[in-house]
């Protein structure tokens, strides 16, 4: 598709350890369109964060290995791009990251203003296309650009509804609340005018009322600016709130991809159905998923969900199901997918 902003194809990443090689991502396909808010959901350990980090090119260098695959973004393959180009042109510029815990993402010994200045010095959108893009630490930060950057910063801090932005810039990270730190993180993510924001569980550390505020803000700003968001979460409620489409991952592979309404109304993969069933609801009582998530060092062959799936047959044990289209936007990887009319299990 022409409007694809980023497409990940057949990505395999493994981590070496004493116990063996863990295949954390095993043939993941994912394509995000410009301006789309995409949810990436799954249980802990399913590879959500590894995928996010692989896109950003910040996998731990000594333990992670990219076995195969490509990440196409803006006509280039990010996996083969040299680190220097990645650092100066892509990471922090066109693809930015909002971390899970905003309290550890700031440096505690500098004021928020200093940290935003540092960001703008190297990642300001005013730099784009300029000759002095690849700056060293000692390069100057011209006065005019600094003033223009400062004006943008204050404007964006107002947009994320921080009261009294000038005063916030003079504060240290511990002097503002968790919700405000997350607002600052969103502002900092949007300052370089990126095309893709990777938000890694941005609201798990927050209370429900603050979560509602932050999600609202993220959705609104992404829409206004046409920024695509990859929103990883294990909270299906939060995904329902803001996503256009949702991708489910299980044990290092994507299993289903659907528009948000289709996802919640007509889940086609047995795992998705079980995940939705285990949400607390007053009608059905509490239902878990039998069994445990597989060890990634020697994962089950074929469909990785087959040991926990009651629909599993011989073919599930040997062959990974290919993606099948349920409708134009909804695809699923399952040999025995649930049909739309099937009642809840």
């Amino acid at each position: 598709m022409a409007s694809e902003l980023i497409s990940v194809r057949n990505l395999r990443v493994s981590f070496g350890s004493d116990a063996g090689t863990a295949k954390v991502l095993d043939g993941v396909d994912l394509a995000i369109r410009a301006g789309e808010i995409r949810g990436l959901v799954g249980e802990s350990g399913c590879g959500k964060t590894t995928l996010a980090r692989a896109i950003l090119g910040i996998l731990p260098r000594n333990s992670a290995r990219i076995e195969s695959g490509e990440i196409r973004f803006g006509g280039r393959d990010l996996l083969t791009l040299p680190e220097s180009a990645l650092a100066s042109e892509v990471r922090g510029r066109e693809i930015v990251y909002i971390p899970q815990d905003p309290s550890t993402a700031f440096n505690p010994v500098f004021t928020i203003g200093t940290q935003i200045d540092d960001l703008m010095r190297f990642k300001s959108p005013l730099l784009r296309g300029g000759a002095d893009d690849r700056q060293g630490f000692f390069n100057s930060y011209p006065r005019e650009r600094r003033a223009a950057d400062r004006a943008r910063v204050l404007e964006l801090l107002r947009l994320v509804q921080l009261p009294n932005p000038e005063a916030v810039l003079r504060k240290y990270p511990h002097e503002v609340s968790g919700g405000q730190r997350q607002r600052l993180m969103i502002a900092m993510a949007l300052l370089p005018e990126p095309k893709l924001v990777i938000a890694d569980e941005p609201t798990t550390a927050l209370d429900v009322t603050v979560q509602a505020q932050i999600l609202k803000l993220l959705k609104q700003l992404a829409r206004e600016r046409g920024v695509a968001v990859l929103f990883t979460t294990h909270d299906l409620g939060a995904a329902y709130e803001i996503c256009d489409r949702i991708t489910v991952m299980y044990a290092g592979q994507e299993v289903e991809e659907a528009p948000v309404d289709g996802f919640f109304e007509r889940p086609s993969h047995p795992y998705t159905r079980k995940l939705l069933d285990s949400l607390p609801s007053s009608e059905a009582g509490i239902r878990g998923i039998a069994g445990e998530i597989p060890r990634l060092i020697d994962p089950p062959p074929g469909c990785r969900f087959h040991p926990r799936c009651e629909r599993a047959t011989g073919i599930c044990r040997t062959e990974r199901p290919p993606p099948e289209a349920v409708d134009a936007l909804h695809s699923v990887r399952c040999h025995h997918r649930l049909s739309a009319t099937e009642p809840a299990s």
């Binding site: 009322t209 979560q211 509602a212 505020q213 609202k216 709130e241």
Partner: peptide, 20 residues
Amino acid sequence: AAIPRIGGPRVTDSFALEGE
């Protein structure tokens, strides 16, 4: 009002409580 309700109206469209 702040709890996301799957299948219901989006909380992010209506939530009004300000501040912390």
